[in-house]
């Protein structure tokens, strides 16, 4: 049921991401945020990182996104080393970060406007409308962000991430600001979108059940210095449904991870 698989498995599908012995020491305060992190993400897979606060999850994500350079090691995306932000990466943060002077539609096509200019953004509006339909925001295209609820704003920011059709989604606690009900709903939506777009997803979360319901692999991190402790494979069938949360199998995986995190804190 639970297999402690090494990071590198015999590949049936192509590796999208591969990190080899990535480490990060922040020069400013000499904090060793990451040490010796190696992992590979398969095409179309969904992986999560879980770990206590401050153990380096966001740092890992930023390095993968090419936002900050690693101190040691190597990051490759689709065979090419990551040396800066890349077109094929879509990112989402805890806050929706919509810009109040742009309406929902203009916010969503912003990545296109920046990459390919205003004309391309105009052409992308049709696709933006379709994405709005997908996340249940039909008719909200002309609404400004201060009139959206937190969940609606976060859904709009999903659309903004997807408009460029990225191959990889890097998600840093995207729904942690939402209440549990909308969070569950967003998670199911996220799963559907990922399956539809055949995207590879990498999710940072604090919620064990969120990690289990969404992921194929869960990377458990230990703090000080941040490193991968274990990889837990979740072999619940797909598509996942919210009913699975009450199954004994789900419960035992959650318990297993919780036990591991508690151990980590005792260290």
């Amino acid at each position: 049921m639970i297999s402690e698989a090494p990071a590198t498995q015999s590949a049936s599908t192509a590796d999208v991401y591969s990190l080899t012995q990535v480490g990060k020491t922040y020069a400013r305060n000499q904090v060793v945020a990451l040490q010796d992190v190696s992992l590979t993400l398969k095409q179309g897979s969904f992986s999560s990182v879980i770990g206590s606060s401050g153990c380096g999850k966001s740092t890992l994500l930023k390095i993968m996104a090419g936002l900050i350079p690693p101190s040691t090691g190597r990051v490759e995306l689709q065979g090419e080393p990551v040396t800066g932000p890349r077109r094929d990466i879509g990112m989402m943060f805890q806050q929706a970060t919509l810009f109040p002077w742009r309406n929902t539609l203009e916010n969503i096509v912003l990545p296109i406007e920046i990459r390919d200019g205003r004309d391309a953004a105009k052409k992308a509006q049709e696709r933006a409308h379709k994405l709005l339909d997908v996340v249940g925001l039909t008719g909200f295209d002309n609404v400004y962000p201060n009139e959206l609820s937190g969940g609606m704003a976060q859904r709009a920011s999903i659309c903004r991430m997807l408009i460029t059709e990225p191959a990889v989604l890097l998600l840093d606690e995207p729904f942690s600001a939402l209440d549990e009900l909308s969070r569950d709903m967003m998670n199911m939506e996220l799963q559907r979108i990922c399956t539809e777009q055949q995207a590879t997803a990498f999710l940072v979360t604090h919620s064990i059940s969120e990690a289990v319901i969404l992921s194929d692999d869960i990377y458990v991190m230990k703090p000080r210095p941040g490193r991968l402790a274990e990889v837990v494979s979740v072999d619940l069938p797909r598509p996942r449904t919210l009913d699975m949360i009450t199954t004994p199998k789900f419960g035992s995986i959650v318990d297993y991870i919780r036990g591991m995190l508690d151990k980590g804190e005792a260290l």
Binding site: P85, Q95, F99
Partner: peptide, 20 residues
């Protein structure tokens, strides 16, 4: 967050200044 977002979108310095 806004800065990181613009960075992930590959915005130039001028774009970041003018659009954000």
């Amino acid at each position: 967050n806004a800065r990181m977002l613009f960075k992930t979108m590959g915005a130039t310095r001028m774009q970041t200044l003018l659009k954000m």
